[in-house]
Amino acid sequence: MTSWKERRVTGPVIRKPMQEVLLEKSPSGPAGFVLNKRQSMGDQLYGQILEQITSGRLPEGTRLPAEIELCKMFGVSRPVVRQALQRLQADGLVHARQGSGTYVMARPADRLASFAEPQRVAEFLRCIEVRLVLEGSAARFAAERRSPSELQAIELAHDLFAQEVARGQLSPQGDLAFHMAVAAASNNDFYPLLLEHLHEALEGFMNISLSLTRTSPRERASAVLQEHALIVEAIRVQDPDAAEVAMKFHITQARRRVIDRNRD
């Protein structure tokens, strides 16, 4: 009987044992699971598996080891393994089949590894969960409360970002300036303060997302700009529901652009 070490959904079996695939030395660092005080164990395990998926060492269709095996391989608890697998599944990278196991379902763009370490990608994607709530709410209040001068600031940030798109020189600073202008227009100082607190993760995520966009077909940059335009228009006409939906849609799409190789 074929073991979990070799089994695939379709195609030939993997000749190398799964433990060796997951623990082998990668171009970006040593083999094994080395704790980093700045990052949670869940983030690091997510990053370890993500790196193997992105590199192609774990191709689509590969069955991952069982939870208990991953615990032994990486020296972590079962809750840590479950957290990493749940987030990989939420990102559409793996899929759990009841009674069968967890399988690799998708692979991000190869060049993702050129723009950030996999563990940092996990951290940045976790920040998206906070941004959805925080910035969706800020956009709603901006639509309700913005002054003419605050709308002008949002439109100026949008125009400057559009100029970057036209030049093919998108920057995290330009993108962040737009989001900060929306937060400031909420007329609640906590929104820009909280975004400022998330600055490192925000800028890191935007750097990955915009780097992928710069190296993709031009339509991708146009999509980002159009999403910004929908937010601006909703705030301009003071439609809180539309502003919140537009902002959440934009952030969700940005997340998908990072992890889905088919969005090139």
Rank of each mutant, 00 (worst) to 15 (best):
L194G: 00
Y191W: 02
H197W: 05
H179E: 12
H179T: 04
S209N: 10
S186A: 15
N207Q: 12
A181K: 05
F190P: 02
E200R: 14
D175Q: 12
R167V: 03
A185P: 14
E200S: 13
L176R: 06
R167A: 12
G174S: 07
F205Y: 14
G168H: 09
P192I: 09
A201I: 03
N207T: 15
L195M: 14
A181N: 12
I208C: 01
L193R: 15
F205G: 14
L194Q: 01
P192M: 10
L176P: 00
Y191V: 08
G174Y: 06
Y191E: 05
A177F: 11
L193C: 10
Q173I: 03
F205T: 05
L198S: 08
L170I: 01
N207A: 14
E200I: 11
Q169G: 02
F178I: 08
S209H: 13
L194T: 07
A184T: 15
P172G: 03
D189T: 04
N188K: 04
Y191P: 11
L193P: 02
G168V: 09
F190L: 10
L193H: 12
L212K: 00
I208N: 00
A201K: 14
L210Q: 00
F190V: 11
F190H: 06
E196P: 02
N188L: 07
L170S: 00
G168T: 11
L193T: 14
A185K: 09
P192Q: 09
D175C: 13
A181P: 05
Q173H: 04
A201W: 05
A177S: 15
I208W: 01
S186K: 02
G204I: 04
D189K: 03
L170E: 01
D175V: 01
L212Y: 01
A181R: 03
L210W: 13
N188W: 08
A183Y: 12
P172F: 07
F205K: 04
Q169L: 07
V182K: 04
Q173L: 08
M180Y: 07
H199Q: 13
G174N: 07
E203W: 13
S209P: 01
L210C: 05
S186E: 05
E200N: 12
L212R: 01
A184C: 13
P192H: 07
L198H: 12
E200D: 15
L212W: 01
F178C: 05
G168P: 07
R167G: 04
A181V: 08
Q169V: 02
D175L: 11
A183E: 10
H197C: 09
N187S: 07
F205N: 14
I208T: 01
G174P: 06
A177Y: 07
H197T: 10
P172I: 13
